[in-house]
Design a binder for these strands. Structure first.
Length: 303
DNA sequence: GCCCAGGTGAAGC
DNA sequence: GCTTCACATGGG
């Protein structure tokens, strides 16, 4: 093969498509995108609009497929199939859950709920912003951070510009006051300090993929504003460490009510229980309990 | 007005 | 060791 015999075809070749359909079974896209893992999805008449890495994307759910649309033609959709974990066999995971009544009720109530596989930095930064905030407020703060410090991306929606999530390096060069302007309050110094540590290579987020869960957790835990809960969220939602079991106020409520109705439990007890009771996909089970508690058992959910 | 929100970290017993 | 408190901001 000789390069001269094959001049560049860039201008004449169709390099891809703006739309793609992915066959899926038992995938509740709406529940998945609103279950407090990711904070950048918006529902419009056209479907779910969001940004994955540097792709604006719109998703529409059909009974046995998810249809995707991007802003410009592409041929490689791995970034999307990876994010949605389309290669994962949900039935196998559900079968690994304990066969007790609370768990089975949660599974029945949240059919098709999935975990996503997110970018580690975006996930980490978003959850630093999440502490003692309602999900709706986290979404607002994250949106502002992207609009203020991210890059504007090619959007498929003329009326709504799209922004990338700003890199750690980008945030690292800002001041605390600039971050506070995004209404993140006392979380600003934490996000800034963590961004600087990541930008300077003190913690290498890519390397955590290769570490055992406990070691990856210890590295995340060393970052300002990151404790056990946020570390577990990142391990589960970005690194796919399925044994990570984030315990927040909702999961505490769920476990208290469903598994320890007679006595008051502490977080440490819940972690020990989770490590033995929920099996190898405990984190997945946690997401079912979290979503079940928030949408079906909470007083507000009746509205 | 009041309580709470996908917590963390430091200070006080 | 364990418990309490401050930290910004806004929703219900």
């Amino acid at each position: 093969m000789n390069a001269a015999a094959h001049p560049p075809l860039r201008t004449s070749v169709v390099v891809g498509s703006r739309t793609q359909s992915f066959p899926v079974g038992n995938y509740d896209l709406a529940a998945t995108l609103t279950s407090g893992q990711a904070f950048r999805w918006n529902l419009t008449q056209e479907g779910w609009t969001g940004v994955i890495r540097r792709h604006w994307v719109r998703l529409r759910s059909e009974p046995s497929a998810i249809n995707a649309e991007v802003a410009e033609p592409i041929s490689n959709w791995d970034w999307l199939t990876g994010y949605l974990r389309l290669d994962e066999d949900l039935e196998t995971i559900l079968r690994s859950f304990p066969n007790d009544e609370p768990m089975q009720r949660a599974v029945a109530a949240c059919r098709g709920l999935r975990l996503l596989r997110q970018d580690p930095w975006e996930c980490l930064a978003s959850f630093i912003l999440s502490s003692t905030k309602q999900i709706i407020q986290i979404r607002q703060i994250v949106a502002q951070v992207c609009q203020c410090f991210g890059d504007e991306l090619r959007s498929g929606d003329a009326g709504a510009p799209a922004y990338s999530f700003p890199t750690a390096a980008r945030l690292a060069e800002r001041s605390e006051a600039e971050l506070r302007a995004c209404k993140m309050g006392f979380r600003a110094p934490n996000l800034l300090a963590t961004a600087r540590k990541i930008a300077e290579g003190e913690v290498n987020l890519e390397q955590l993929h290769n570490l055992p869960t406990a070691e990856a957790r210890a590295q995340l835990d060393s970052l300002p504003g990151v404790g056990r809960k946020i570390a577990d969220c990142v391990l589960l939602f970005a690194y796919g460490k399925q044994s990570a079991f984030p315990v927040d106020v909702w999961v505490m409520k769920a476990l208290q009510q469903l598994y320890f109705p007679r006595r008051k439990v502490k977080v440490e007890r819940v972690h020990r229980f989770a490590a033995t009771h929920f099996g190898p996909n405990a984190g997945y089970a946690q997401q079912y309990l979290f979503h079940y508690m928030r949408t079906k058992l909470s007083p507000k959910s009746k509205a």
